[in-house]
């Protein structure tokens, strides 16, 4: 009888799911992903988390609650650092403990650390210890690890080719993209944490809305790692947080690209790093560029009117500016 490992559809799921899934597949372990965010999942999460936590963390707890009675284990790696000399937000580090202290009758958590902060540290440590839970055959773990790295690479390639995480993964799912692909006349860069911008519920379907308004959406994940790292290097001092470095780097890059008509920065209310990235983007990345930038803050509110108003006005503005540029181009 095989066991099932639950993976919450939250936080770094959007980057690492293909890798995690491949790894477990090759060990003969079944995986179950929590359902897409619904109001019910979010409400459960809000109820069982401390008030100070940010929305994505509350939502992640909700996703754990969606899984906990259906699986034998829950995979919640303690993500400390995903790159050398950089950290991930401390709430990720403490997330397994947040879950443990708020939910009763949990299945065992697989919460080994992923810490690449120091020179010479390797991702293999995490996968080896996880693998030992399910098999005693080190060669099998090594093979599964190799395959998982390969699928992470494929995932990154797909995103660099212009797919978004929820579309990538082999079955390119066109159903959410607008049918007539030719009408996308503007390009909008959406800068934000992956778990905010790709979650259809808490982002209030922002990406889909932008598509419907005729925009082509690009995000930080469409850029290869070396590009956003190079761009983020323009800051006077290196940022500690990997995800925010990615966002600031992407903002630098997209402000310089002529085909990008505007940027939207999405922050979650109460996120410390986000409040700072917002400032950095406004002060540094935008220097010398008159491209429109919209700051959106998302939180528990369900009223969509505020979001719709801002997005509509933003799209109007972007189109007007383009028209004016076109007129100017014909005269000069």
């Amino acid at each position: 009888m095989s066991v099932t490992v639950g993976i919450p559809r939250a936080l770094l799921f959007y980057y690492y799911y293909p890798q995690w899934k491949t790894f477990f597949d090759h060990l003969g372990v079944k995986t179950l992903v929590s359902r897409e965010t619904t109001r019910g999942i979010l409400e459960k999460g809000i109820k069982s988390t401390v008030d100070e936590a940010c929305l994505p963390v509350k939502l992640a707890v909700g996703h754990v609650l969606d899984l906990y009675d259906k699986v034998d284990y829950i995979f919640l790696p303690r993500i400390v650092s995903t790159a050398r000399r950089e950290y991930i937000c401390p709430k990720f580090l403490g997330f397994p403990d947040i879950v443990r202290n708020n939910i009763n009758n949990l299945p065992p958590l697989i919460d080994y650390s992923m810490d690449l902060y120091r020179k010479g540290s390797s991702l293999y440590n995490l996968f080896y210890t996880v693998g030992r839970q399910f098999t005693h055959n080190p060669a099998r773990i090594f093979m599964a690890y190799k395959k998982s790295i390969e699928s992470l690479r494929m995932h990154c390639q797909e995103m660099e080719a212009g797919w978004l995480p929820f579309e990538a993964g082999g079955n390119h799912n066109h159903e959410h993209r607008p049918q007539s692909a030719g009408v996308q006349d503007v390009t909008i860069a959406v800068i934000g944490h992956p778990y905010n911008i790709y979650d259809r519920h808490i982002s209030m379907n922002m990406v889909k809305r932008l598509w419907d308004y005729g925009a082509n959406v690009v995000t930080a994940d469409h850029l290869p790692e070396n590009v956003f790292r190079r761009e983020a290097g323009k800051l006077p001092k290196q940022l500690f947080w990997t995800l925010n470095q990615r966002m600031v780097g992407a903002a630098f890059y997209y402000f310089d690209r002529p085909e990008v008509d505007g940027l939207i920065h999405v922050a979650s209310f109460g996120c410390g790093p986000d409040s700072m990235t917002g400032e950095l983007i406004e002060r540094f990345a935008r220097q010398g560029s008159r491209k429109p930038l919209l700051n959106l803050t998302i939180d528990e509110h369900t009223g969509e009117a505020g979001m719709v108003t801002r997005l509509e006005a933003f799209m109007d503005m972007v189109r007007w500016r383009r028209q004016l540029d076109d007129v100017a181009a014909t005269y000069y």
């Binding site: 209310f269 429109p292 930038l293 700051n295 509110h301 505020g306 109007d316 503005m317 028209q323 004016l324």
Partner: peptide, 10 residues
Amino acid sequence: IVADFAMNTV
């Protein structure tokens, strides 16, 4: 033409 705008947050 509108070059930029901002609205109060929550």
